[in-house]
């Protein structure tokens, strides 16, 4: 099949970008979307042109590196899938596709379809962990975890931090990402000692990073390649309120060290 691609080309951070038209010829339907771009890039390189930059690594849908908008939908038309696992059989000859990077103030474009998602790392650094120094752990079976709790925590923990939720949200909100990590850790008995402080810190960091608010419209959930549910946001909101009004004193938020 032959396709027409309109791809966002931007030399570097802060530079002006534009959509550039390319033709992808003789695309095999068993190719993945990224392999289709690989072939196009190989042709560009042989013509001496700058290939289209995009982030990718495992190509198994688990590392979370890849992702861009295809015709205005994060990760493209197939649900529950990252672009590396999206195959060309979902498109047809003559299709015209618009490829754009994730767009958000918190995710500045690095080049072409590559964006900087370090804001996510900083949200995790703000409290997305359980403080347990190496060697100080009790026996693995010392704290039983109800199977159901574990399953729910696992559902939330499946997040791959690809950023599709932010990209798809009209407000560029990181609520699904942050909610998922808060739910994962706060559902488990191990996460209880730091529960409310964690929620407060991560939410505060999310605000510092300039993400927008959540309007509960559900686009994030729809494009999430790991099908993380909107309930994680409700969970986060619940812990946020508890932290603010029930648990009392606020910690001072400042980076230490």
């Amino acid at each position: 099949m032959n396709l027409i691609l309109h791809v966002w080309r931007q030399k570097g951070p802060g530079e002006k970008g534009q959509m550039v038209r390319y033709e992808a010829k003789n695309v095999n339907e068993d190719m993945s979307f990224l392999e289709m771009l690989d072939v196009l890039n190989e042709q560009l390189v042989l013509r001496g042109e700058d290939p289209i930059a995009f982030d990718h690594d495992c190509r198994e849908g688990i590392c979370g590196s890849c992702g861009f908008m295809i015709n205005g939908v994060a990760h493209g038309p197939q649900r529950g899938t990252t672009v590396c696992q999206l195959h060309m059989r979902h498109f047809k000859d003559g299709d015209e596709l618009w490829l754009e990077p994730w767009r958000a103030k918190a995710f500045p474009v690095v080049k072409d379809l590559v964006v900087d998602r370090s804001a996510f790392d900083r949200i995790i650094a703000a409290g997305g962990y359980i403080s347990v120094p190496t060697g100080s752990a009790p026996d693995g079976n010392a704290i039983p975890v109800p199977k159901k709790k574990q399953e729910m925590a696992m559902d939330a923990a499946a997040c791959i931090a690809c950023g599709a939720c932010v990209a798809m949200c009209p407000n560029a909100s990181a609520a699904l990402f942050t909610g998922a990590k808060i739910s994962h850790l706060n559902l488990l008995p191990q996460g209880q000692p730091e529960r409310y402080e964690r929620a407060e810190r991560m939410i505060a960091q999310m605000n510092i990073e300039n993400f927008g608010h959540c309007t509960n419209i559900g686009e994030c959930e729809a494009v999430c390649p790991k099908s993380i549910r909107l309930e994680v946001i409700a969970f986060m909101n619940r812990d946020f309120l508890r932290a603010k009004w029930v648990e009392g004193e606020e910690p001072v938020l400042a980076s230490q060290g």
């Binding site: 190496t134 752990a137 693995g140 109800p146 574990q150 925590a153 850790l185 488990l188 191990q190």
Partner: peptide, 22 residues
């Protein structure tokens, strides 16, 4: 054996039996 303890304490959601054990 220490690795499992460490990871459980960090919140790694390992599969559990109905009784809550690993």
């Amino acid at each position: 054996v220490n690795i499992i303890d460490q990871c459980v304490a960090q919140g790694v959601p390992f599969a559990r039996e109905y009784g809550g054990t690993l």
